[in-house]
Measured scan of single mutants.
Amino acid sequence: NITAAIYDEIQQEMKRAKVSQALFAKVAANKSQGWLCELLRWKENPSPENRTLWENLCTIRRFLNLPQHERDVIY
């Protein structure tokens, strides 16, 4: 289940792992930094009809659900 909290989790994970938006986007969703920036802007007004947005957030959720040491190896 995806909630608005995922946006904060993304920010916290980037700080914790000391990774850039570009690197996080690449490893978590195989996307660009610009894409992640755009995604983070949706926090203010996520559209329930935007299926692509929710699919991408689900992809990021799966990455964030990995154990921390696995995420660190991927970075």
Rank of each mutant, 00 (worst) to 15 (best):
N1L: 03
N1V: 09
N1H: 00
N1D: 04
I2N: 05
T3G: 04
T3L: 06
A4G: 14
A4Y: 15
A5E: 12
I6G: 02
Y7G: 01
Y7V: 12
D8L: 12
E9N: 10
I10S: 02
I10C: 05
Q11N: 15
Q12K: 08
Q12W: 09
E13R: 00
E13H: 01
M14P: 01
M14V: 03
M14R: 09
K15I: 06
K15R: 08
K15A: 14
R16L: 08
R16G: 08
A17V: 13
K18A: 11
K18E: 08
V19W: 01
V19G: 04
V19N: 06
V19Q: 02
V19E: 04
S20P: 02
A22S: 11
A22E: 04
A22L: 12
L23F: 06
L23H: 05
L23E: 14
L23I: 02
A25L: 02
K26N: 11
K26P: 02
V27N: 15
V27S: 08
A28W: 05
A28S: 10
A28C: 12
A29N: 11
A29D: 15
N30E: 14
K31W: 02
S32M: 09
Q33G: 11
Q33C: 07
Q33V: 12
G34Y: 03
G34D: 09
W35N: 10
L36H: 00
L36P: 00
C37D: 13
C37R: 12
E38H: 09
E38D: 07
E38I: 08
L39H: 10
L40P: 01
R41M: 04
W42L: 09
W42E: 12
K43M: 02
K43C: 01
E44P: 10
E44T: 07
P46Y: 15
P46S: 02
P46Q: 06
P46T: 03
P46K: 01
S47F: 15
S47H: 06
S47E: 05
P48R: 11
P48Y: 15
P48I: 14
E49N: 02
E49P: 03
E49M: 05
N50H: 14
N50Y: 13
R51I: 09
L53N: 14
W54H: 03
W54M: 11
E55M: 03
N56T: 09
N56I: 08
N56A: 12
L57M: 09
L57C: 04
L57A: 07
C58S: 09
T59S: 13
T59M: 14
I60L: 13
I60M: 10
R61C: 10
R62S: 15
R62W: 03
F63N: 00
F63P: 00
F63V: 04
F63G: 00
L64G: 00
L64M: 08
L64S: 01
N65H: 06
P67V: 10
P67S: 06
P67C: 04
H69P: 04
H69V: 07
E70L: 05
E70F: 04
E70C: 01
E70K: 08
E70S: 03
E70Y: 05
E70G: 02
R71G: 00
R71M: 03
D72W: 04
D72I: 10
D72M: 11
D72H: 05
D72Y: 09
V73I: 05
V73D: 09
V73C: 13
I74S: 01
I74N: 11
Y75V: 01
